[in-house]
Design a protein around this nucleic acid. Structure first.
Lengths: 334, 334
DNA sequence: TTGAAAGCGCTAACAA
DNA sequence: TTGTTAGCGCTTTCAA
């Protein structure tokens, strides 16, 4: 028998409080929830008893009665990535402001694990789920029996029937490319994370379109995972092909770290030989060497919007695309 | 009325399953929990109904009945720090192996917030708590009425009445200092994170003792927060004092990032002018420039030990001090 | 092998 | 203003 059983067995219940205060159990609920008027005198006695016994309402009983656990779930690809760690943290704060607790788990980049985590969360009966999926069209079958609302977070193109919140990737890429072009670079390459579906990443679209508008030829493209390793390998490939451009748009700060590492190893100076603008605006950008100029996502706003969409929204799905902004570091040569 | 209410209202209950299978509700429990023999025929019918309805036992009802939520809580100073993110992830995996879900929240380095999070977790009736505290003697008053077991994780000196799991900081510092001394450096400084109590950090002790044993004078000490910013400022201070040693032991990879940034800015070459060994062995070490030689903590083992201490241990408090090991990068000049 | 029933702690409708 | 009570979905004892 687990220790926990004795732990909760020893915990004061509403009846204990009622007995000590000399009132009925219902009155304790009235005081705790403020749902009904109670005479000041009674209230004082009840509060006193609550204090003495260290009483806390049992959340399982509450949840059972109310049909709501007041918990929200979030699935991220990996919490080691500071971008997702920060996003999850912002969501945690936004949820807490509404009295909800956030359960976060990481799918480690696997679709199978993502599905399992979703299932696990629904089993736990969370009141809603934020999903940062590894794929464009996540497998939501585990939710079909549950009616639990979902918000696709960090998801820039809307899946028709789902709420989604994301940053404007196309616009972000535009900021990056225009900034590099503003420095006079005419050859601007792309190091981009691999997506697992058919959809083209908005950053790639924005990069191409902006170059076109500026009358510039697209520079070389290198693909890799959305990770430091992925960035490292992407940059290594550019080096091997002898096709290192003068400027490079990198699709995440994490990849940026890898690109920098490969550049340093090869003796490519940043920004003198290679100017870089990356994406996300996470802490990693500020503590790379050189610091990365990065297209920052408005995480706080995205988190707030996600919580709002989950808790307040009914009717048609919400699709919010938030504007990014450029945070200038040293890697672009400013 | 929140959407969640309607969501859970629509969820199939055990009674629905029983009705569909033509058995009593109890039999459904027998099948689900495997606690009692049921005829193969009945079992098949029940499983069929479960499948059809997508039935999942209501965890709140289970928890209410069993007195256990099968959830564990964890409080970390910050989940943005990859070291804690990784530690939390390892704990999440270890807990999952035992059928427990992990609730993680970050205290953002504040003692007040740490206390609040602890309280919040106990209120949620988790079956146990892992605490990576900001301080040596955490304020556990919020738990006094609850009997919830606690493990101090990332805590190297045992608080007498509590379980604690940590790495051997003294031994870790020894590895670092001996390695640097092995490179022939005779002046080895220390950049160390500030602790908020009176206790001296084991790394400082180990650093001093090892130098003493080697017959070397202690190099300069710089203190700062356990963060990139803290490392940056610590290094800046050494630079301003004109007291940059030839070798430096840095008490975390996060600080190491800041030290590197300050060194780069000042034109101090690593490892040529300054050799560095840091602590934690996190991803940050591998993607710094140059890569950091770092004293790695056995996170997986620590997480497993922590879960074991929490779930299996009764009687006297557990105090486990795990051995670290050196991961060689480029910053030491190897 | 199966079923009936008590009760976990709580909220809220209703009665007093 | 306060108390009584039904019932949320589940596990488990006891009886059939």
């Amino acid at each position: 028998m687990p220790r926990s059983t004795s732990a909760s067995a020893s915990r004061a219940t509403r009846n204990d409080v009622a007995r000590l205060a000399g009132v009925s159990p219902a009155v304790v609920s009235y005081v705790v929830n403020g749902t009904k008027k109670v005479s000041p005198d009674t209230e004082a006695r009840v509060r006193d008893a609550i204090e003495k016994l260290g009483y806390r309402p049992n959340p399982s009983a509450r949840a059972l009665r109310l049909g709501s656990t007041e918990m929200l779930g979030m699935v991220v690809p990996t919490s080691i990535n500071p971008y997702f760690a920060q996003l999850a943290h912002e969501v945690e704060l936004a949820a807490a402001r509404r009295g909800y607790l956030l359960l976060t788990s990481s799918s480690d980049g696997s679709i199978e694990s993502e599905r399992r985590h979703l299932e696990h969360l629904t089993t736990r009966l969370v009141d809603g789920i934020f999903l940062c999926s590894n794929v464009f069209e996540p497998d939501l079958r585990g939710l079909e029996h549950s009616n639990i609302p979902v918000v696709l977070l960090n998801h820039s193109a809307g899946v028709p029937a789902r709420n989604s919140i994301g940053v404007d990737l196309v616009q972000g890429a535009r900021l990056a490319v225009e900034h590099l072009a503003g420095h006079g670079y005419e050859e601007i390459g792309l190091a981009i994370g691999r997506t697992s579906g058919d959809e083209e990443d908005g950053r790639e679209i924005g990069w191409r379109e902006t170059l076109e508008e500026l009358g510039l030829e697209p520079g070389p493209i290198a693909r890799g995972a959305f990770s430091p390793d992925g960035g490292y390998e992407a940059m290594r490939r550019l080096l091997q092909r002898g096709r290192v451009p003068r400027a490079l748009f990198v699709s995440s700060d994490q990849m940026g770290r890898g690109v920098l590492k490969a550049a340093h190893e090869a003796g490519v100076r940043v920004p003198e030989d290679l100017a870089i603008v990356s994406f996300d605006g996470s802490v990693d950008a500020a503590y790379s060497w050189p610091t990365l100029t990065s297209v920052a996502q408005p995480l706080t706003e995205m988190a707030a919007a996600a919580v709002e969409a989950l808790l307040d929204h009914t009717g048609d799905p919400v699709h919010r695309i938030m504007p990014p902004h450029l945070v200038v570091g040293a890697s672009c040569g400013c």
